[in-house]
Amino acid sequence: MIKRVIVLLFLLGLGLLFIAFMQGYTPDSELNLTGRYYAEHTAQDIGATNIVTAIIVTYRGLDTIGEVTVLFLTAAIVGMLLSRGNRKGKSLQRELPQSGELLTTGSYLLVPLILLLGAYVFINGHLTPGGGFQGGAIVASAILLMLLTDPLRHFSHQLIAIVESISGLLFVIIGVLGLFYAGGFLDNRILPTGELGSLFSAGAIPVIYSLIGLKVGAEFSSMLVNLSETEDS
């Protein structure tokens, strides 16, 4: 009981702080300096129409490398934690109810479409909303649909690992190429900037974002597959 009172008091204090913050807050009517710089220079310098993509891939490209690394570490830790259940031939002996014919057929119909949508999202990252992270999550959703249809389905861990590491390696190599042939690490102007608004524009951004998409999709997929292959306790 005393604990609950302490929690409530703490939350009350936090709420008062929030209210004070909200009363003092006035929305900006103009872009601040950073935002104005990005808005005015992205189209000429980078050639991408989606400014958020330009920020994530080029202006703040190092942060993205860090983020992808954090995701990779997470996937690796999940795999390590649950690796006990991966002994071959022994996993999942219990009987599962059949998944109906309709769901099986429907998933065979929908999985290619979901993969196609994922590819569309990460290839068009510089023109439309979306990009590597979204596309990777959509690709992983396709894997999830397969898992939901047939939990005993075997996924090749090797294929996932190969896709993951090759795309990560290419990502870093492209970054280093930017160091030699353009302004700096992860500069996108190693390829021509192209015409604003067409698919082959914005230099290396579509390539880099596709690689990020493949990498993120492989990481999420490996998390899902590792989780679903654990033994029933």
Binding site: L103, L110, L113, I114, L117, V121, T128, P129, G130, Q134, I138, S141, L144, L145, L148
Partner: peptide, 18 residues
Amino acid sequence: IYLDIALVYALLSFLGVI
């Protein structure tokens, strides 16, 4: 371009239900 989000919604929101 906002319709892209509707596209993702239409294709993925049934996964949660399944």
